[in-house]
Design a protein around this nucleic acid. Structure first.
Lengths: 237, 237
DNA sequence: GTCTATATCTGGATAGAC
DNA sequence: GTCTATCCAGATATAGAC
């Protein structure tokens, strides 16, 4: 977990961050242990994986709120009773998924960007880290983006706080870069929004990019060009 | 309807395109006359307006599929029976809204961009037209963007066709501009996606922009800068 | 830990009086 | 054209056998 230094190399990232299927699912189980009735870890992790995969599939087709638990039961091959041994309630299922994502950011990139790097490198690390994580967990982030409506007040607030937190982080980086004379930015707010759009675009329109065989590394190249044109004082094209 | 020439002047656009509240609602009624049981036009237009406004409000809060028609009845002050004199079914309500948007594009900007303008002006007209229309109908477009999942197969297909159609139009403009030596673009597909993201961003994140008192004209200025940096051969900053 | 059967409720939709 | 009352399908959630 100490090797990936913000390089634009997806294979390297995948080998250093805990983003394999089994790592993800077991991290998910760890975070929500207390809400899962089933005791045996191995069984629980496996079934949670099936449940979540099916949830993403069905939500993509009809939306989460139109997905009935009978649908889910059929898709997973589990009975209604079984499902409830894992999820508590339909609403809680959505919440667990939402709560998991900030947790994954912490695991994968937060420690990477806390060092005292040059400010432009720091921005690169943030951008690349975001794209890499969302590439590995694309269905998760897509789900979270589309299905924010169905959350309890508390979790909605948490989602909003995360949003604003990431905006604040970007703005801080831009401020610092400007003070150091590395960045220019006529409008900081717009620069932040632009970067966020580019980051979100990757998982929201993932299907279109795959159709055109665009890799996440190429996508990073592209958006770094756009961002640099906005921010860099010495933008040598 | 023949005066607005792609200028970045919102007031001018509003005075030439049929985008006032009453014009919009009566265009909506015209398009869907046949599905509305109530005969008297004046009554129908007014009530449709209340219904749609309430639908947007409630969908924003809980999502369309979690909005019950009883909720809607309460919010509009109409009874269940009355509602059904206007909407046919819940699903049809969503469909009518979706089908209305391409119709509005036709009314507001299609004839503007069919002329034989210089290619860079044509692109400007497309960009400005989109932002202006989506500014006037922001809740409509936001609704359509978030609630695509709940449509019948046919209307889903229609939505997808519209998407691809607008991409094709942009790509065509870029191609032509490149042949004329006005545009450069290392990757046409990415240029199209970038433009589309910027256009969508305006109505998807409308609230954030309003908070920062960003007008649609300023937004256009900003995204035209970004687009020009990508496309223009002679980009004199 | 998993299943089937069932209790309970909510939501879409309609009939028919006014 | 609008309202109230009602029907019924389908959803969440649970109880209890295995």
């Amino acid at each position: 977990m100490t090797q990936w230094q913000g390089e634009n190399n997806f294979a390297l990232f995948k080998s250093t961050a805990p983003v394999s299927d089994s790592q993800v699912c077991s991290a998910f189980y760890q975070q929500h242990k207390n809400k899962v009735a089933v005791q045996k870890e191995k069984i629980a992790v496996g079934k949670l994986k099936t449940i979540i995969t099916a949830t993403f599939k069905l939500s993509n087709k009809k939306g989460f709120s139109l997905m009935s638990l009978r649908d889910l039961s059929q898709e997973t091959g589990m009975s209604m009773g079984s499902l409830y041994a894992y999820i508590g309630s339909k609403g809680q299922l959505a919440e667990m998924i939402h709560q998991f994502l900030p947790h994954m950011f912490d695991l994968c990139i937060v420690e990477q960007i806390q060092g005292s790097d040059a400010i432009d490198l720091k921005l690169k690390k943030i951008v690349r880290g975001h794209i890499f994580v969302t590439e590995c967990l694309q269905p998760w982030f897509f789900f979270a983006f589309m299905e924010t409506k169905h959350l309890s007040k508390n979790v909605k607030q948490l989602a909003k706080d995360n949003e604003l937190g990431s905006e604040a982080m970007l703005e801080e980086v831009i401020n610092e870069g400007e003070q150091q004379g590395i960045f220019k930015a006529s409008n900081h707010f717009m620069a932040v929004m632009l970067i966020k759009s580019l980051l979100q675009g990757w998982y929201v329109k993932h299907g279109r990019y795959k159709q055109h065989k665009m890799s996440c590394e190429n996508y990073i190249d592209f958006i770094e060009t756009v961002i640099n044109q906005q921010l860099l004082v010495n933008d040598s094209i």
